[in-house]
Design a protein around this nucleic acid. Structure first.
Lengths: 333, 333
DNA sequence: ATGAAAGCGCTAACAT
DNA sequence: ATGTTAGCGCTTTCAT
């Protein structure tokens, strides 16, 4: 049993509606899209015909004529990652009310696929694409060459020739680390991209420095649960285990937490955590994570508006994260 | 700074390529789509022109001509729910290699939005839509009326006039409950949709009956983390707390686990759990969940094939879940 | 207020 | 092997 359209049923077009309502094709269009004034009685007849024939406008024809498919594309590394999943929903929440559909594709974090998808989206006459994948200056020319409007989502810094929206990673990391410091922990580790060009790393460093504390150990981790798990094992295996750790993402934290439990340790008692992102999972881990929540919805809305609305005046729109205190840092909460 | 296409640049069409390569429009089409044999030298010239002009075919025009946008739609209740997020990725994994893009929309579990989206997808000339939302017989006529091909994903039983794919929920629940029984637990509760038309409920019931055990308490929960949390509080508050519980989804389990921790209890020691779905999160909770893993990828592939390939002979394609043993049931694992 | 008709970019039937 | 052309369903300019 399959659901092919009943055989013999020709697709009903605008022309059928026009004939049925006794008007010209143009009037149907006017009635439906308000392109010109239509007499009330005529409009009613048209609408009735639409209903009766269950007419569905052909969006492809419309897109061809208009050069816009009322579609916006989103390129993410992994749509199943909760952070990106939430981001995509935010984009959808902003786009749908404005009459746009959202087409999400997975780059798996490869530049090659990102560019391929950008082309494929362009060919679909998208009105713009939001790129939430790792991107640097060297990618810009290729993006420009596609001719589509695009903007960078989840990008924390300015980028020449690009519109970007993202959270202030450094300030967030600093706030989280300061909170850890306020608990009195003397040695505070870092997990994530431990490089001086990573804003979270910088934030952690600067909070420590400001407090006159030596930086604790740094452990590299990709932004994945298994990556966090491995990093967590490294952490728990340390000869001088730090009292606390700033972790660069919730995803990583989830993995770290697993390693802590497996080692028979207790968080925050044996090692306290502060995390980053504020995804739902951070609320349901054990212990619940103290984390810097990104204003995901607001960022999605801003990005969509940049794409479909009039451009705002700034090239980079920076949002502030909000430290949400839960138990992993040692607070009673 | 915005990324509008450089002003004054007209979009390059097939005709430009043809002129540049010194051939007719048709030959460009033949070269690109293999509609007819083309001399090697000519083909090379065309391809060169394509490259030089960075020509991107207009998918809307193609879709209009062909009546197919090489697009498949997916309607889910919530794309940020890990189970559905993984399902969507599975669909994408099957669709993209076949040359189809995937457009995912959120119904928020309302019939109204499901139907609206079905229409909107139909108007976009999708080649089919996969519906992974709660659907019953009464919805079928309206779906049929849209004229699009559709199939039900995540639907565990037959449905007249529909093609469905889903896991054997009852068998899965039975296996999970049997495993709990094998641990020697005497009283085993149920959390989920505690109604005799829910296959998981039935599976739990029948395992208990077969073992000669009285059914433990049943607690209702929607398939969400907060729902599970509330159910978990109820569970931990019970005068005679059951020794174990079968939970209808990982999402719910995550919430239950939080309640267990908050009550100062220990799983599996104080209450053992077996769950359902096998999402990634089940592997990273504490304790990791013993759960019935659904073959998500295989189901996504099957559904896509049904939509775009030749129909298989069956109307319902049933998959078996696989019990994966972790710690929440009391196993050392 | 309504109609006629051009044309968006593409494919494919038909002709050569 | 290649060219010509009709037409997919729609919007919109220009007439009326």
């Amino acid at each position: 049993m399959t659901n092919a359209p009943p055989t013999g049923t020709r697709k009903v077009t605008r022309k059928d509606v026009a004939r049925y309502a006794g008007v010209s094709d143009a009037v149907v269009s006017y009635t439906l899209n308000g392109g010109a004034p239509v007499a009330a009685a005529t409009a009613a007849r048209v609408r009735e015909a639409v209903r009766l024939l269950s007419y569905t406008p052909n969006a492809s024809a419309r897109a061809l004529k208009l050069g816009s498919a009322r579609l916006i594309g989103v390129i993410v590394p992994d749509s199943a990652n909760p952070y990106f999943a939430e981001l995509c929903k935010a984009v959808e929440a902003a786009a749908v009310p404005a009459g746009y559909a959202v087409l999400v594709v997975n780059s798996n974090d490869t530049k090659k696929r990102t560019l391929e998808y950008l082309h494929s989206l362009a060919s679909r006459q998208v009105d713009g694409v939001l790129i939430a994948a790792t991107v640097d200056e060297s990618d810009v020319p290729a993006f420009q060459a596609t001719g589509v409007r695009w903007a960078l989502l989840n990008h924390s810094s300015e980028l020449a020739e690009a519109f970007t929206v993202g959270v202030d990673l450094e300030a967030g990391a600093r706030a989280a680390t300061e909170h850890l410091i306020s608990h009195g922990y003397q040695t505070i580790a870092f997990i994530g991209q431990a490089r001086p060009d990573d804003p979270r790393y910088l934030g952690w460093r600067s909070a420590l420095r400001a407090a006159g504390l030596e930086p604790g150990p740094t452990i590299y981790s990709p932004f994945t649960r298994p990556g966090g798990h491995a990093a967590g094992r490294e952490l728990t295996g340390l000869r001088n285990r730090p009292e606390a750790v700033f972790v660069s993402s919730d995803m990583i934290s989830i993995g770290v937490l697993r390693a802590i439990h497996e080692a028979g340790l207790n968080a925050p008692h044996d090692v306290a955590l502060a995390s980053f992102d504020g995804t739902v999972e951070s609320e349901y881990s054990w212990p619940p994570l103290t984390t810097v929540r990104q204003p995901i919805l607001a960022m999605g809305v801003a990005a969509v508006n940049q794409l479909i609305g009039r451009a705002t005046s700034t090239s980079h729109q920076r949002f502030e994260g909000e430290l949400v205190i839960r138990r992993s840092c040692g607070c009673p909460g």
